[in-house]
Write a protein that binds this DNA or RNA. Structure first.
Length: 595
RNA sequence: GCGCCCGUAGCUCAGCUGGAUAGAGUACUUGGCUACGAACCAAGGGGUCGGGCGUUCGAAUCGCUCCGGGCGCGCCA
């Protein structure tokens, strides 16, 4: 079993430190030893700035300290040389056999290459809940949701690969006003189909899918849900002039909508629930199918309504009240979130007795903690950032460990078409659906496009560009490297087992040695990407790896006469293919053998 | 007004727990298929890392400030 070079180098430096600067080698004042892979191959395989860091503390010349550290460095079979460079860097060049051994290690580990060493996984894996998308099931998912879906799915896979026991969860907001608005919108379209004209409110859901659901209701239930227009409109304030957009007009439109909902519930009774249920299941299954096609799978679909039905919301509010975190003002119950750093206190229960969304969200988080996860990750749209302090505050107020919760914010995707910004609203029915985008550019290109930038980076999404340049997507560049290797392997036609026995010392060109270094970096990329919740790092790494492979492919031939050299190069190619595959699985992108 | 995210090549973006001449793709120019897949490669031009001040041996990276953009600041969800 070979020793990890980075671990070995750290050990060597620690020993040298004991001689050179014992006061910084003890556990208490330990100097952190940072080893990085230099960009410039002339700087070796690893470099450390340890001497420069020490120089500051000891007020000594960094190059002199570097020289002393190098002199005290114990010998190791892994290290070919350690040299001082620049202002005081110590550059390490690994022994050739140590460098190429990663090829054999990769082939031996196969799909597991890149996972943390089993030695580090001391006990059972830590449980983590990743909650993402969680879009209101009030219409088709749009390209903004797609970003959250791609990021969340890739992050979940990354964490799973990095050794976590991951549960993926979608929080279904099936209890709120938005669902009532969707239900009433569908009912109004249904009434239209029976020539019962009550006027469609501008703040109802406008999309065509609402008409589709209305037609389903008509086909299944006939006239059962029809009511006279006068009864439907009874007591509503009516709609203000369509051209007005002042606050009073907006309020009136919302009141009109609420009155329609109230009338629907009153006139239809249990049938209202049937309509509500129908539109919910219809939209949920549409979204679920869409996501599954996108390679995004959830283990749990968690119902907000269930939090009310089981009484958890009430229990939660009681608990906060007993702990003295609530007070009553203007008839409503407020949570003292300012005590936890929020800018203002928040209502949990309205004057009319109805709990706010915030109340159910507190209950939801309590439930998450009670399910025993070691860590919770919420992936939210960036517009929710102001929401974080109150949720974290409530968690603390309930006596739960707030540090277990991480909120990863995904910035909005700003859509452009013909150089103009497109505003998207689900209610207004103006949006580009995720499904359309996927069909237009393909799932692989879509997944890769989304994950090719940091989640907290704003995303300018030029639809025309995405469509016209879909064949330029870097995903094909990586897939092409994989397919090329598959093709060479097929032409070779030998047994994969033979590659395990290859004499890797025959890998000698600078490109080949650089590639082995790249392969060796994969586990480090996985570790830091997982730690920083940044799957995009995997995507960039794969792009780099594919680039180095293509350059090598064009410079050297694999299927050469020299049998030993051929096997060594094929082994390297096979290892590259394996790492590409392992990385692409994390990103949810396929690896075709030919394309 | 306050809070969060951001400003890097013509365009889209990496790099940010301080490190070596600031990188990639794309676009543009030029060259490479009688050898394993040219969806590829090689070479070239292109930068006050938004501006300024500061900390440091060293700043795209940290701090302050200004400019510019996005988002948030409901008894909505």
């Amino acid at each position: 079993m070979s020793v990890d070079p980075k671990t070995e180098l750290t050990r060597l430096l620690q020993q040298a430190l004991v001689s050179v600067a014992p006061e910084f080698s003890s556990n208490a004042a330990a100097m952190p030893i940072l080893l990085e892979r230099p960009r410039d191959p002339a700087h070796g395989d690893f470099a450390t700035n340890l001497a420069m860091q020490l120089a500051r503390l000891l007020k000594k010349n960094p190059r002199e300290l570097a020289a002393r550290l190098v002199a005290e460095l114990p010998l190791s079979p892994l290290v070919q040389k350690a040299e001082i460079a620049g202002a005081g860097f110590i550059n390490f060049t690994l022994d050739a056999s140590a460098r190429v051994s990663v090829v054999a290690a990769t082939l031996a580990a196969g799909a597991a290459y890149g996972r943390p060493d089993a030695a580090f996984a001391s006990s059972a894996p830590q449980k983590v809940l990743v909650e993402f998308v969680s879009a209101n099931p009030t219409g088709p998912l749009h390209v903004g949701h797609g970003r959250g879906a791609a990021y969340g799915a890739s992050l979940a896979s990354l964490l799973a690969f990095a050794g976590w026991d991951v549960t993926r969860e979608y929080y279904v907001n099936d209890a709120g006003r938005q669902m009532d608005i969707l239900a009433v919108s569908t009912w109004l379209r249904y009434l239209e189909a029976f020539e019962i004209q009550v006027g469609f409110p501008p703040n109802g859901y406008q999309g065509d899918y609402v008409r589709v659901m209305a037609a389903q209701l008509r086909d299944a239930r006939g006239e059962r849900y029809t009511r006279p227009a006068a009864a439907v409109l009874d007591g509503t304030p009516g709609l203000p002039d369509a051209t007005r957009d002042d606050a009073a007009a907006k309020t009136q439109r919302e009141q009109h909508l609420d009155a329609l909902i109230a009338n629907g519930k009153k006139l239809l009774g249990e049938d209202w629930n049937a309509i509500h249920q129908h539109v919910l299941t219809e939209q949920l299954s549409d979204g679920r199918g869409d996501l599954e096609e996108f390679g995004v799978h959830f283990e749990v679909w968690f119902s907000e309504k269930a939090l009310f039905d089981t009484g958890l919301v009430a229990r939660c509010v009681d608990q906060l009240e007993k702990a003295g975190h609530l007070y009553v003002q203007d008839g409503a119950k407020w949570f003292k979130s300012t005590a936890f750093g929020d800018e203002k206190d928040r209502v949990v229960q309205r004057e009319n007795g109805i709990y706010t969304y915030f109340a159910s969200d507190i209950a939801y988080h309590l439930n998450k903690y009670e399910r025993g996860f070691d860590r919770l990750i919420n992936i939210w749209g960036a517009d929710h950032h102001g929401y974080i302090p109150r949720v974290k505050g409530a968690i603390q107020a309930l006596g739960l460990e707030e540090a277990r919760l991480d909120v990863a914010l995904v910035q909005f995707a700003v859509l452009y078409s013909n150089g103009e910004k497109i505003s998207m609203t689900t209610r207004g029915g103006r949006f580009v659906t995720l499904r359309d985008l996927r069909h237009e550019v393909g799932n692989d290109a879509c997944r890769f496009f989304y994950v090719l930038r940091k989640a907290d980076q704003h995303l300018d999404f030029d639809l025309d560009l995405a469509k016209s340049q879909s064949s330029d997507n870097p995903v094909y560049y990586i897939q092409y490297a994989h397919a090329r290797i598959c093709s060479v392997m097929n032409q070779w036609g030998g047994e994969a087992a033979a590659l395990q026995e290859a004499d890797l010392s025959r890998l000698e060109t600078s490109r080949e040695l650089a590639l082995t270094g790249k392969l060796a970096a994969f586990p480090e990329i996985i570790a830091t990407a997982a730690q920083e919740l940044a799957p995009h790092q995997v995507a960039f790494y794969l792009k780099d790896l594919a680039a180095e492979f293509h350059a090598w492919y064009n410079a050297e031939r694999m299927l050469v006469e020299d049998e030993a050299l051929k096997l060594a190069r094929l082994a390297l190619a096979a290892a590259i293919r394996q790492v590409i595959y392992n990385g692409m699985v994390i990103l949810g992108v396929s690896c075709p053998e030919n394309m």
